[in-house]
């Protein structure tokens, strides 16, 4: 059986909010190392991969590998019933029909309990190898969100060009063009605002802004975001969480119709 308790229900809430607009149903794979999730969007050009390590839960118990097939909009509905600082306990049998969510308020003695019916979801699972990316950019998550949002007003796609000088997000649309250039910077007093660029070779790739904007819904999860690029492979957008947990998005680059 599975029993996992999160100190803050809001964390799961944010994760689900970030991916529910990308996938409808997905399997939460639970094993003794934690809860993992991998799913693709309807067009199969983007992939979301989440790992909540067992360390993020206190306590965490999972005797057997369980796949919890959950409709994300159902899960959203239930999570909406939780207050952000509620404690959340996830429980399931070994061969479950339902997953049980218990919200406990810290201050009052309020306990609410919900069961969500599970689904059989037949999803293919992709093996994602560790990759050495040509360029890795770490920046404040709100900054990335702002860039995507601003540029998406002009165009469907953005080119991300990473050179020694810095990283340049540029787009061209019907009404005109726009670009945002960031240079590596470090602020000792406020390291969250740093822009760090690791570059082994310059890269330039084009991506769909609609998808990137969608990924940015995870900005609430983390102060920082990491973009990893190499030519000809999907962009990795990673939102790190505590205890080495993460939420990662992969997006296939646009090839062939350069702007």
């Amino acid at each position: 059986m599975l029993e996992a308790r999160l100190e803050q229900a809001s964390m799961l809430k944010k994760v689900v909010d970030a991916i529910k607009d990308l996938v409808q149903d997905c399997n939460f794979d639970c094993n003794d190392s934690g809860i993992a999730l991998q799913a693709m969007d309807n067009s199969h050009v983007a992939l979301v991969s989440m790992l909540l390590r067992s360390e993020a839960f206190q306590p965490f118990r999972c005797d057997r590998n369980i796949a919890l097939g959950i409709n994300l909009s159902s899960l959203t509905k239930v999570l909406r019933a939780a207050q952000s600082d509620d404690q959340l306990t996830i429980k399931a049998e070994d061969a479950p029909d339902v997953v049980n969510l218990v919200f406990e308020s810290k201050n009052t003695d309020r306990i609410s309990e919900y069961d969500i019916k599970l689904m059989d979801i037949d999803q293919e699972h992709l093996g994602i190898p560790e990759t050495d990316y040509a360029a890795t950019i770490a920046m404040p998550a709100p900054e990335f969100q702002r860039i995507c949002r601003d540029l998406s007003a002009l165009s469907e796609s953005v080119s991300i060009e990473c050179t020694k000088e810095g990283v340049k997000f540029a787009c061209q649309g019907d009404i005109g063009s726009g670009s945002v250039q960031l240079r590596a910077s470090s602020d000792v007093s406020n390291p969250d605002e740093n822009v760090e660029i690791e570059l082994s070779e310059p890269v330039s790739l084009t991506f769909s802004l609609k998808y990137l904007v969608n990924f940015c819904k995870a900005s609430g999860l983390s102060t920082r975001v990491r973009l990893c690029l190499s030519s000809e492979v999907p962009l990795l957008v990673e939102y790190p969480m505590q205890e080495n947990s993460y939420l990662r998005f992969y997006l296939a680059p646009k090839i062939g119709d350069e702007e």
Binding site: D21, D41, N42, S43, L47, K210, N214
Partner: peptide, 19 residues
């Protein structure tokens, strides 16, 4: 969800499948 409906409109030309 609304987001999924919006994503359906996204132009995925030139994008290969994850697989």
């Amino acid at each position: 969800s609304r987001g999924i409906k919006q994503l359906k409109k996204a132009d995925t030309s030139g994008m290969k499948k994850m697989s």
